[in-house]
Nucleic acid binder design. Structure first.
Length: 502
DNA sequence: ATGTAC
């Protein structure tokens, strides 16, 4: 058997791209890293493996805890981690979902081709940068009244469409129809709502961006056709989250859970994994508040979509929907926790079990924590919109601004291998501080423009340095692993044309 | 990621 050891953590190679940390000590379940040898080296470079092993101590976690090929260190729980935890006898952990609740990405199609945009990149990038708020702090597409905040938190994209910021298919072509049914806005603090009020429709900072891209490669023509994507076609990628509102909510509940459930906390190897036991008041309140933040992030991306359509309409002097075909392909959450039903191994008592204790397999309700991981439901799954059900759910994986991105489709093996999940991006290779030492924003911007015809405009040069292509892992390698495993299959690859960011 | 600090 092939084994590897990093910092005292031993991994056994189960099969190609599947590495297992066997159950030992306080681990409730084994953990698995889904990675090629090359990506495993990068993953083992920071605390990711320790964090993955720590996560297996969470009560009620179901076999296995997973790290995706783009995994790296996060707050308590790896970015790129999937933790499926029993919703009756387990717990819910904000750190395993992430500070930026429903950080995610959507792709908007257009009927334009690269020839239509070529030579007009600067005009487009300036107009988008002017129209779409970005950077730290306040200022959104709209200033949220109390009614707008409540509508967004309660009803998500439905609210935005009714308020005139979208069309009906913006709901259907979004994960969960753009609305979490179990959202409970009353459990979001006033302080969080106040932070969100003037951020409705804003990109934020860090790795968040809006990118105009062209389709360069088509790997599965039948699926690409079902998705309305073709070579040379122009698409728009919008990557952002729930801004200060989600951040505040995560913080609010981490503090409350630490205070109220100190007994559970004391059993965990890392305070940052603080969790509320299933059935507790705080589990219900956090779950409802998180659902409301999910809706807010979807509204955020919807308002940016609305503004983007307006800009394209002006630049190309055409109706963005009727003439330019700017419909939503799909919108996926990258940081999310939700109740889903999955088949798991159970013991004689009908509760989740591991190894020799398993006597049967049955469906259980789980809190599926995806932190830097994308839902990737396969063809035939009832939660895939009707238009895509025969081919599988669109999965959108952004790479760096110099490398481009991928559209995948949920693979046939995803339910068996990864609780219906795959990777979410290229994954960082170095910290932001290290990136600023290695790169200079102006140089990066010039090289992208002169060398690759990629036009970038950002609020701050430091952000360009922090997000330089060289700070990311190889997105092609991440996607290769997903495709090989059959959890998310390559459909098309895109390449950047214009990028705006905070 | 984040009014980069409870």
């Amino acid at each position: 058997m092939t084994t590897r050891e990093f910092d005292g953590i031993r991994l056994e190679k189960v099969r190609e791209h599947v590495w297992e940390i066997p159950r030992e000590g306080g681990m409730n379940v084994p953990a698995r890293v889904l990675a090629s040898e090359q990506l495993l080296e990068a993953i083992a470079d920071d605390k990711t493996l320790q964090q993955l092993r720590n996560a297996t101590h969470l009560p009620g976690i179901v076999e296995p805890a997973i790290c995706m090929p783009d995994g790296h260190q996060g707050y308590g729980f790896p970015v790129g981690g999937v933790g499926a935890i029993d919703a009756e006898v387990g717990c819910i952990s904000p750190g395993a979902i992430g500070y930026d609740i429903n950080c995610g990405v959507r792709m908007v199609r257009t009927d334009l081709t690269y020839d239509d945009v070529r030579g007009r990149e600067d005009e487009l990038v300036e107009a988008l940068f002017e129209a779409v708020p970005s950077g730290l702090g306040g200022g959104g597409v709209i200033t949220g009244t109390a009614d707008a905040i409540d509508g967004a938190l309660e009803r998500g994209v439905e609210w935005a469409v009714e308020a005139g910021y979208g069309i009906e298919s913006d709901c259907t072509n979004c994960e969960d129809g753009g609305r979490r049914p179990d959202a409970r806005p009353e459990f979001v603090s006033q302080k969080a709502k106040d932070r969100g009020r003037n951020q409705m429709g804003s990109l934020g900072s860090g790795n968040h961006f809006l990118e105009v891209q062209r389709v360069t490669d088509v790997f599965r023509p039948d699926v690409a056709e079902a998705y309305g994507l073709a070579a040379d076609g122009i698409v728009v990628l919008i990557h952002c989250g729930s801004r200060g509102l989600g951040h505040q909510t995560c913080n609010d509940y981490l503090r409350r859970i630490e205070q109220t459930h100190g007994d559970l906390l004391a059993e965990l190897p890392d305070k940052e994994l603080a969790a509320a036991p299933a059935g507790s008041d705080l589990a219900e309140e956090y779950y409802g508040a998180m659902g409301a933040c999910i809706n807010f992030a979807w509204v955020n991306r919807q308002l940016i979509t609305h503004r983007t359509r307006e800009v394209f309409g002006e630049v190309f002097d055409a109706d963005p929907i009727d003439d330019l075909g700017m419909t939503l392909l799909y919108d996926v959450a990258h940081n999310i926790g939700k109740k889903e039903t999955h088949e798991v191994g159970v013991g004689p008592d009908g509760l989740p079990a591991v190894g020799n204790a398993v006597v049967d397999r049955t469906e259980r309700d789980l809190y599926v924590h995806r932190k830097g991981a994308t839902r990737a439901f396969p063809a035939g799954h009832e939660d895939v919109p009707a238009a895509y059900r025969e081919v599988g759910q669109p999965v959108i994986i952004p790479g760096s601004m110099g490398a481009g991105s991928y559209v995948l489709r949920g693979g046939a093996a995803s339910m068996d291998v990864s609780f219906g999940s795959t990777a979410h991006g290229a994954g960082r290779l170095m910290s932001r501080t290290q990136a600023k030492r290695e790169f200079q924003g102006g140089d990066v911007r010039r090289e992208l423009r002169d060398g690759q015809a990629i036009h970038v405009k950002a609020q701050s040069g430091a952000t360009i340095a922090e997000e330089a292509p060289g700070v990311y892992k190889d997105v092609d390698e991440v996607v290769r692993v997903s495709d090989d495993l059959g959890i998310g299959d390559k459909v098309v690859r895109t390449f950047p044309v214009c990028n705006i960011k905070g």
